[in-house]
Design a protein around this nucleic acid. Structure first.
Length: 846
RNA sequence: GGGCGCUUAGCUCAGCUGGCUAGAGCACCUCCCUUACAAGGAGGGGGUCGGGGGUUCAAGUCCCUCAGCGCCCACCA
């Protein structure tokens, strides 16, 4: 006996089912299943910084529909969640929220309590205190994140939740790093690196972005001896003149042939620098001759390295000109000029240099304003500088073509959804110019588990690493002591120091399949889930997260981390701009979940093609809600026949009903194929359109027969087919509308629909019957509408003229048509030209 | 400069390996309270499928080309 409410409603479904699913363990991962029976998802751990926005709802829903489909296909779905609470966003928030700053040199203060209000000026605290504040602050956000994801109906197994800040992920990061180090895949190097002067940290190539900035071209005079003509050089960065180490021109540039190998003297500072040929110099740009500074841009680094030039650094890590000039600036006037620059930001220094050049007459004309692209750290506010520093790197093929070829090949073995996304991986890997810089000069993150010996004279020996045993991890070298030492030896001659840096957040994220699968900690589990099936993620982090995961997985396990990568698009606001926190146009999802229900919002998300940027569209949510309501109502109606008791499928003998099953079988097949290809949107579209046609046409057609107007057998056939269709549609819609589908399922089935098997149908009916019947019914409806009659109004005569094949279909549906259309006489006439003539009964109102 | 994607009704978008008069939803108009649903239903108006060329019996769909928009990569004097 079906338990159908008198007045079906969507109200309260979310709260009820969230609790029910939890209580019944509907989404628990069955870890007894073998790898071949598991579908494992490498879920993106969202960055915990504030709140989730509608973009999260969008992409996480995509993944969830696939998880639900695979679960219904009988797979044990490994669907963990993680919180990425590492990294700069958290640091920034903690600094601002409490008004504190981390000073790693300070000891831990167990009694420290954060101020109630942001403290100004910021209070300096030790790294461990700072970390504790980070944990406190993210904890509240994480509760809200979990609540939202549950509300949205994500079928995550929350038992596998992890936080990147926790010991286990930290240990995974440190172990993997030490193994990289031992195998030579990680190394340390002192070299010019891109440097953010505000965050005071090195940044990686993958975190750069170009911004178009106004600048100016300055024409400078470099002097040649013996009264020869001056050498003119155009530069946008005259403030780096003191850092000039050479002048380069293209080897074929006729203008400079005689100068190659000679020296010229720099303006203002009178330093002799060589004029050298190099392929990268462009005869078309400026005067064709460029000054090489240490370092103005990445090309300078190349010239410096390949031409074996000295270093004359003048910009410090704070972005200001260093107090002391390079040794090459020896002349007293030159040193006096330099003194006017010292301590200034590069921007201020530029103004001073221009002034000085005007005084000496070495600036030709005025600076000519231009716009040019400048490299920024993607989270930064000021242009990057290049400074020499000691950093950790992981080899990624950027300096090794054989390795690069391996990573390119791995990218080709990966299945991409949509397929064209592989181009982004290809062009990124092909264009790498250096290894992956993983160290950051930050206080909060996974520390490098390395100490260095301090020699007897007090210098740190960076060439020797003291590393802990794996089973001692995780460690913090600024708090923990290397084996064989005591805390009193920290920083002392003959003692040790800890590596002060932390790993970039991607260095941890790149291990997400290992962290999620509990590598090291639970080998049995890991063997059942790795390599994973699916990596869902946004397309703009292919170069960071996706690529780095491929790299780490290759090093640690010699395999691709997953078989399939599913890239989601962006949410655009109505002005077609990407919704992003930094753009200030994000939409908070809660209000929409309240208004349209989780199912409605999920419908909107699932309507967007995989990988395609999609406009935020409230209208789609409204449609989703209507779909959910329709499912309630049609379920109620179908379950009203035979008191909701199941009727054996064997009763389905009527040609109209058999045609329905054939249509259903096709829809199931299309949805299945689409889902297998990760195309949730197509699965939804096929299902939805078949569902509406079922409700509006088929149900109307067989309604009368279901009530019994054509006898018990005909009624049983209709009822049984309606039940099959209902069961099928409920399950096809379950991945998209998990709440309402489980509600209607609960009216007549045992257990959650989300643990029910995905529908399978074999049918051999002739669905031309439905096409023919639909055509006639449509004509009848049209006639009634045009006559402004009710759909119930009687029809005296319908004459159907069509080829015999179509007539056979109409004949098969005769009783249903007569009933559905209130037709007194239905006459069929064979004809080449299909035509339906409807004669309405006299209007009783007239 | 190289690459990728997009351009179909007023709006948001489907249209998969070329094939019946190009579809859906929203919006708009008309009608219908029919006992699953008025939070519904029936019907209608509206498109030379970005431009041009080509292949084909047949092109929104394939090829070439141009244009606009977006993105990725590279350049950055």
């Amino acid at each position: 006996m079906a338990r159908v409410p008198d007045k079906p409603t969507l109200e309260g479904l979310e709260r009820r089912f969230i609790a029910e699913w939890d209580a019944n363990g509907v989404y628990l991962f069955d870890r007894t299943r073998q790898r071949s029976e598991v579908f494992a998802i490498d879920t993106p751990p969202p960055t915990v910084s504030g709140s989730l926005h509608v973009g999260h709802v969008f992409s996480y829903t995509h993944t969830d529909t696939i998880a639900r489909y695979q679960r219904m296909r009988g797979k044990a779905v490994f669907y963990p969640m993680g919180w990425d609470d590492n990294g700069l966003p958290t640091i920034r928030r903690v600094q601002n929220y409490y008004g504190v700053r981390c000073d790693p040199s300070l000891p831990y203060d167990p009694t420290f309590q954060p101020p109630d209000e942001p403290h100004s000026p910021p209070i300096d605290v030790g790294r461990r205190n700072f970390t504790e504040l980070c944990r406190q602050l993210v904890a509240a956000d994480e509760v809200a994140f979990e609540e939202l994801f549950r509300r949205l109906g994500l079928s995550v197994d929350w038992n596998y939740l992890y936080k990147t800040i926790d010991d286990r992920p930290t240990k995974v990061s440190q172990v993997a790093f030490l193994r990289n180090l031992a195998r030579g895949e990680a190394y340390q190097q002192e070299a010019p690196t891109l440097w953010d002067v505000d965050f005071r940290t090195a940044v990686a190539q993958a975190e750069l972005e170009d911004r178009e900035l106004p600048g100016a071209s300055h024409l400078l005079t470099f002097h040649r001896g013996d009264g020869a003509d001056d050498l003119m050089i155009d530069t946008t960065r005259p403030e780096l003149l003191a850092a000039c180490v050479a002048v380069v021109a293209h080897p074929d540039d006729k203008r400079y042939q005689t100068l190659f190998g000679t020296d010229v003297t720099t303006p203002l500072f009178g330093v002799n620098v060589p004029v050298l040929p190099h392929e990268l110099a462009d005869a078309e740009k400026g005067t064709g001759a460029a000054m090489v500074c240490t370092f103005g841009d990445l090309t300078d680094v190349t010239w410096w390295r390949e031409l074996d030039l000295p270093i004359r650094a003048i910009v410090g890590r704070d972005g200001r000109v260093l107090a002391e000039p390079p040794g090459a600036i020896s002349d007293a006037d030159a040193r006096a000029r330099y003194a006017r620059l010292a301590g200034k930001t590069t921007k201020q220094a530029q103004a001073v240099v221009v002034e000085l050049l005007r005084e000496t007459g070495e600036l030709v004309g005025d600076p000519r304003p231009l716009k040019h692209p400048v490299k920024f750290y993607e989270r930064g506010d000021r242009p990057l500088e290049i400074v020499t520093s000691r950093q950790w790197y992981i080899r990624n093929g950027g300096r090794d073509d054989k390795l690069r070829a391996i990573f390119l090949e791995l990218g080709r073995e990966l299945t991409w959804h949509p397929e064209f996304m592989r181009h982004r991986y290809e062009s990124w890997v092909a264009g790498l110019t250096g290894d992956w810089l993983i160290s950051r000069q930050q206080q909060f993150g996974v520390p490098f588990p390395v100490w260095y010996p301090v020699t007897a004279d007090g210098t740190v020996d960076h060439d020797r690493h003291i590393v802990p045993a794996e089973d001692a991890l995780p460690i913090d070298p600024s708090a923990d002591i290397p084996p064989g030492y005591t805390e009193s030896q920290r920083g002392q001659p003959g003692g040790f120091v800890g590596d002060p840096d932390v790993m970039d957040t991607w260095a941890t994220s790149s291990l997400s399949p290992l962290v999620g699968g509990r590598w090291l900690d639970d080998d049995d589990l890991f063997a059942r889930v790795f390599p994973m099936n699916m990596r869902p993620q946004a397309h703009e982090i292919i170069r960071t997260w996706l690529f780095s995961t491929v790299v780490r997985s290759y090093y640690e396990l010699g395999a691709l981390p997953w078989s399939d990568a599913a890239l989601s698009g962006w949410i655009l606001d109505p002005d077609r701009k990407k919704m992003a926190k930094s753009k200030g146009n994000v939409v908070t999802p809660i209000a929409y979940l309240d208004t349209y229900g989780s199912d409605g919002v999920r419908y909107w998300a699932a309507s967007a093609r995989p990988g395609v940027d999609s406009t935020f569209d409230e209208g789609q949510m409204k449609i989703g809600r209507k779909l959910a309501i329709k499912l309630l109502n049609v379920s109620k109606f179908v379950l009203g026949f035979n008191h909701g008791e199941p009727v054996a499928e064997a009763a389905i003998t009527h040609p109209v009903d058999r045609a329905l099953l054939t249509r259903l079988a096709r829809v199931v097949s299309e949805a299945t194929t689409a889902f297998d290809a990760f195309d949730y949107a197509r699965a939804l579209e096929r299902t939805e359109s078949a569902f509406w046609s079922f409700c509006d046409d088929h149900v109307e057609l067989v309604k009368g027969r279901s009530y019994g107007v054509a006898g018990d057998n005909a009624a049983a056939s209709a009822t049984a087919s309606l039940q099959v269709a209902l069961s099928t549609f409920q399950r096809l819609l379950a991945p998209f509308l998990p709440f309402v589908s489980d509600e209607v399922w609960s009216w007549w089935q045992e257990g959650s629909i989300h643990n029910a098997p995905w529908p399978r149908l074999d049918a051999d009916g002739d669905d031309a019957v439905l096409a023919a019947a639909g055509w006639v019914l449509g004509a009848v409806r049209k006639a009634k509408t045009e006559a402004k009659r009710s759909m119930r109004s009687p029809v005296e005569l319908v004459v159907v003229r069509a080829p015999s094949a179509s007539l056979a279909g109409v004949e098969a549906a005769r009783t249903d048509l007569i009933e559905a259309g209130s037709i007194a006489t239905l006459r069929l006439e064979e004809s080449e030209e299909p035509e339906t003539i409807v004669t309405l009964a006299a209007d009783p109102a007239l």
